[in-house]
């Protein structure tokens, strides 16, 4: 398909015979800004890892930029769940961002171009003044911006974010989503979250995931979709047009 950056067809993943993803089919095109919502344990992180080639599905086909995900994943910027790393690690903000360039060539030091890119990317996310700070000595929102910079410094064509807003204050989340707004001019963005309201304001398309994926290539979900995903009736709040996620009902 033309303009497709990531394509999954009938993907199934099992952990110890338990299905985590079932028959997931989705096509992400350049400049898509897709939000994926779903309950915890619904397979959201697994789905991202399948796109990155970190998990090989038992069934189905995964294409990244038309090829093998393990080979083409260097064109994907990945922002993992930020709570999962060691905050005490002796590394500066600048060096964290530089690790985004570590795969460019094996052996030796970072080049001047690597350093310039890291510098510019930190500037873009307003974190340049913190470049020499140890990574643990930042607030949650600041750290999240550093991880975005680390993903962007390899100049990706698509950005995958795993629960980027978790544990960040609401007013800082807004700043963070504004960064994403700017980025979507340049690349496709896939954001996974369990926070439906935040996602609905910014993304252009929404998918719902709980083992199975419900996606209509649009920003609308039906109440049936949500019920199927959350396995119980979901209380809707209709926000008026700019925030609308659900069809009028």
């Amino acid at each position: 398909m033309k303009g497709e950056v990531i394509g999954l067809r009938d993907v199934c993943v099992y952990h110890d015979d338990l299905p985590v993803l079932e028959d997931v089919t989705i096509s992400i095109r350049s400049h898509d800004f897709l939000g994926i919502i779903g309950p915890n344990g619904g397979g959201k992180t697994t789905l991202l890892k399948v796109m990155l080639g970190l998990i090989t599905p038992e069934k189905g086909e995964v294409k990244v930029l038309g090829g093998d995900p393990a080979r083409n994943r260097r064109h994907i910027g990945y922002v993992p769940q930020h709570s999962l790393f060691d905050h005490d690690f002796p590394i500066s903000v600048m060096d964290v961002v530089l690790t985004g360039r570590a795969g460019q060539r094996l052996f030796g030091r970072y080049t001047d171009q690597d350093k310039k890119l890291a510098h510019d990317t930190l500037k873009m996310v307003d974190m340049l003044p913190f470049a020499e700070r140890q990574i643990g000595k930042l607030s949650g929102g600041e750290r999240q911006r550093v991880f975005i910079a680390r993903a962007l410094v390899a100049e990706p064509e698509v950005l995958l974010l795993d629960e980027p807003a978790a544990g960040i204050d609401a007013h800082i989340q807004t700043e963070f989503y504004e960064i994403l707004e700017k980025l979507k001019e340049k690349m496709a963005i896939v954001m996974v979250s369990h926070d439906l309201t935040a996602i609905s304001i910014y993304v252009d398309k929404i998918a719902c995931l709980n083992r199975r994926l419900f996606y209509h290539n649009s920003k609308e979900l039906t109440s049936d979709d949500l019920e199927a995903v959350y396995q119980c009736p979901v209380e809707f709040i209709a926000h008026g047009l700019p925030h609308r996620v659900l069809k009028e009902h």
Binding site: L52, L54, R74, Y78, P80, F89, T99, A102, G103, A154
Partner: peptide, 10 residues
């Protein structure tokens, strides 16, 4: 620092 991320960037 982050083995999984390092894998992703190649």
């Amino acid at each position: 620092f982050d083995e999984e991320f390092a894998t992703v960037v190649g």
